[in-house]
């Protein structure tokens, strides 16, 4: 004990670096706690259950529906077609910025930024990044069940 130099006495000041280290660790702990607490709070506004109506719905096609003529179910953004090969549904929500496209004999036309799509949904003009998706259709008796959550390859038709 006596051999120890007085410099190493516990009464002497601590090396400043160690205090800095403790202080900085405390600061870092506080900052990261607050940061992750705020991040966790973002879970609240991230909706878990969507309030929008069911994405699967039945459609009854009128007998008079001609080939290439679109049937738009009430309140839905889907165009349902029927030809000799079967029934198919194409989403009418523009893949650019979500406006509802209008069906015409040449295909679809978006009123917001002028995207045009051919009758099978392929982009022919404008800023739309993707073709209009084809939606899954299944037969249920005399009704057709359209499922907006399932995208099928273009050309898939239900019989």
């Amino acid at each position: 004990m006596t051999e120890e130099s007085p410099k190493k006495s516990r009464l002497d000041p601590e090396p400043i670096a160690r205090r800095d280290f403790l202080g900085l660790s405390a600061l870092f702990a506080a900052a990261s706690t607050l940061f992750f607490a705020l991040l966790g709070m973002l879970k609240l506004p991230k909706t878990a259950v969507l309030s929008s109506p069911s994405k699967k719905f039945p459609v009854v096609l009128p007998d008079s529906l001609a080939t290439g003529e679109a049937f738009i179910p009430q309140g839905r953004s889907v165009a349902v077609f029927r030809d000799e090969k079967g029934v198919y549904a194409i989403s009418t929500i523009c893949t650019h910025l979500g406006c509802v496209v209008k069906n015409n004999p040449e295909g679809f036309e978006c009123p917001c930024h002028g995207s045009r799509f051919s009758v099978d949904g392929t982009v022919t003009k404008g800023p739309a990044p993707r073709p209009l998706p084809w939606l899954k259709v299944t037969r249920n008796g005399d009704k057709w069940l359209v499922d907006e959550t399932t995208i099928v390859t273009p050309g898939t038709k239900a019989t």
Binding site: I72, G75, R76, S77, C99, V100, P111, C112
Partner: peptide
Amino acid sequence: NPSVPENPA
């Protein structure tokens, strides 16, 4: 009206 966009919007 969610099914008919204003044109031009």
